[in-house]
């Protein structure tokens, strides 16, 4: 049995009196695509953001490839290199070219030379099919292209796992496909991924494991066939029924 890339144990997170995560245990193996679904406010995004400590967990441990991210002495900036993060609103640096967006951390954190950083940046852009946009600025790109740059930015660091926080929910419907296609290719290349999203079709086709969260807890988890085909928990059933009403 291989050790998981991401292992979350007993994770709690409160904002003031509001307990958003009430004890989450989860592990993601190498090459696995874990898909998280659940109603808004169920804590999915918070869970994801705890996984690179953009949010400070209130309790619990998170191991990234065996390293304790939650230890007080953890070298956060080094460990974060192993965890890519793709944001709902892309969060590209508007004042930099696409290539600089992708290579900034390579130059400043990994201390690569400008040439080496650019080379790796261009490699990452090639993977998302945007090699020709290297010199463009974010505002010149469509939303779908911006999100692919966001993916390239995290890939350039050669992370062990990439976290996707609703990567397509800020996009126009016709642009969603391009982003999902890139994610699918990543998955086929063996990247370990955790995806929070409402793209159920993508989950059915690409996910290895689906987790349904509600009110800060994991209610049910299993293969896409189990969760979408035969959910056992009433809350999962209700949620999926609501979702299919919308897409119908």
């Amino acid at each position: 049995m291989q050790s998981p890339i991401l292992k979350i144990t007993g994770l709690h997170k409160s904002f003031g009196d509001n307990e958003v995560l009430k004890g989450i245990d989860l592990s993601v193996n190498k090459g696995q695509l874990l898909f998280m679904i659940g109603p808004s406010g169920s804590g999915k995004s918070t869970l994801l953001r705890c996984c690179n400590r953009l949010e400070e967990p209130s309790a619990g441990t998170i191991l990234v490839d065996g390293e304790d991210l939650t230890a007080p002495a953890a070298d956060l900036n080094r460990i974060r290199q192993n965890i890519g993060m793709v944001f709902q609103h892309f969060n590209l640096y508007r004042h930099m070219s696409v290539l600089d967006n992708v290579s900034l951390a390579l130059r400043k954190v990994q201390k690569l030379s400008k040439d080496q950083a650019n080379e790796r940046g261009l490699d990452a852009l090639k993977r998302v099919g945007l090699l020709d946009k290297a010199k463009a600025f974010p505002d010149q790109l469509s939303g779908g292209q911006q999100q692919r740059v966001g993916i390239a930015r995290s890939l350039a660091l050669r992370p062990k796992v990439v976290l996707f926080d609703e990567p397509t929910s800020a996009l126009d419907p016709e642009l969603v496909g391009d982003v999902l296609k890139v994610m699918r290719e990543l998955k086929d290349d063996g990247m370990t991924m955790v995806v929070v999203s409402h793209e159920m079709g993508f989950a059915r086709a690409a996910a290895d494991h689906v987790v349904f969260m509600d009110a800060g807890l994991i209610v049910e988890q299993g293969t896409p066939q189990q969760i979408f085909g035969a959910p056992t928990q009433p809350r999962t059933q209700a949620f999926l029924a609501r979702m299919s009403e919308h897409s119908a």
Binding site: I83, M85, F87, H89, N91, A105, K108, Q110, S154
Partner: peptide
Amino acid sequence: VPKGQSEAARSTGLN
């Protein structure tokens, strides 16, 4: 400057 900008930067390991 939107908070997401510094979050993106921090998530790539910038201090």
